[in-house]
Computed example of a mutant assay.
Amino acid sequence: MTVNLLDLDLEGLAGYCEELGEKRFRATQLFRWIHQKGASGFDQMTDLARSFREKLATRACIKAMPVISCHESTDGTIKWLFDAGDGNAVEAVFIPEEDRGTLCVSSQAGCAVGCRFCSTGHQGFSRNLTTAEIVSQLWYAEHFLRQRLNTDERIISNVVMMGMGEPLQNYSALVPALRIMLDDHGYGLSRRRVTVSTSGVVPMMDRLSQDCPVALAVSLHAPNDVLRNDLVPLNQKYPLHELLNACSRYLAHAPRDFVTFEYCMLDGVNDRAEHARQLLDLVRRQDHDRGVRCKFNLIPFNPFPASGLVRSSSAAIQEFARILTEAGIVTTIRKTRGDDIDAACGQLAGDVRDRTGAGERMARRRTIMLQAAR
């Protein structure tokens, strides 16, 4: 059986080298060739013994997901569509800024959480991506950009697991991928510059804090359980009280001293002044270890036809931010990037074969809600 070396973190690669009868230190050389130099073939690895390269050529590969398409926004954002096989395609997005280059990475083909405001969730869920498929998005993007800019310097400084899927529902593939990103022999990213975004899978948040604590972002989007049950169905399993307690526990191990709460601004749904005040009460409750140290990232909703939702007005977003800021909560308003190529937050949809019926159930739920509204 051929082993895809993109599936292995450094420890896994060292074990694999031992299985081949090689010294463990060979794994470090191999790891650097793959991730730092972007080698896709063993014949490129000139400082490895020929016998080792020949052995690898018959038993292993470095195989990334094929690229179906690449689109570039007028603001410099780049979106790649990757072929995940069996009718599935997933998306990754590079967002260039003056002081950083951020790659938004997918963890699943589709998503089973089914948040109302997310186009990925409306497609339903097909399958988890492998570690190799998660890592290959970074591997391809980093070396594509280096070649384009004719440089050996690192281009991608930040990775956010905010693409298609719920990362913590693909935990066994996620953690090795994170370790590859963080490893100094790989991409050498700081734990502060790798962010996992979750809709609130509480048990896996606790595990991540022990196994590979990186920066944490939580898709909050509502200040009370009634509203969040509707917007983020996972809340019915892990309500806000449990979620906020998990955030407090995570902060004891996190590389940052705050959790980022993502909040999608939906006109007439969650954007009133009373909602902002409820948020303040929520994050300051004494039963959450004297409150949760946090910042808010307000996200203007990026509409798509199936949602039936509307973006909050600029005035409403600014007023919402003012209430939080004046109460002493660091609050930012996310600048919409790449919306002309459907690469903005909540727009990533790829092409997914729904194997769960989630997309159909969401469509039925939306129809019922529209009928009730009439």
Rank of each mutant, 00 (worst) to 15 (best):
N4V: 06
L10F: 12
Y16H: 10
T28A: 12
F31Y: 08
Q36N: 09
Q44A: 15
Q44R: 11
M45I: 07
E54Y: 10
A57T: 15
A60M: 03
G76L: 06
K79I: 10
E91Y: 09
F94T: 01
L103D: 09
L103K: 07
G114T: 03
F117S: 01
H122G: 02
H122K: 06
S126F: 06
T130V: 02
E133Q: 12
S136I: 06
S136A: 09
E142V: 02
Q147C: 10
L149Y: 14
I156F: 08
G165L: 02
L168S: 04
Q169Y: 15
L174T: 01
L178E: 07
L182F: 14
D183R: 08
G186C: 05
G186K: 05
S190M: 14
R193F: 13
V196W: 00
T198L: 02
G200I: 00
G200V: 01
V201Y: 02
V202Q: 05
L208Q: 02
L208C: 08
Q210K: 12
L216H: 08
S219M: 08
S219E: 08
P223F: 13
L231Y: 04
P233A: 14
P233V: 10
N235F: 11
K237Y: 13
L244W: 00
N245F: 14
N245Q: 14
C247H: 01
L251F: 15
L251N: 03
H253V: 04
R256N: 13
D257R: 09
F258Q: 04
F261S: 00
E262K: 03
G268N: 11
R272Y: 13
A276R: 00
A276G: 14
L280M: 11
L280D: 07
D281R: 13
L282G: 03
L282M: 12
C294D: 09
P305E: 14
P305C: 08
A306Y: 04
A306E: 12
S307N: 07
S314F: 12
I317D: 04
G328T: 09
T332Q: 08
R334Y: 13
R334A: 06
D340K: 04
D340E: 12
A344C: 09
C345A: 13
L348Q: 04
G350T: 00
D354M: 05
T356N: 04
A358V: 05
R361F: 09
R364P: 05
A373R: 12
R374Q: 14
R374K: 14
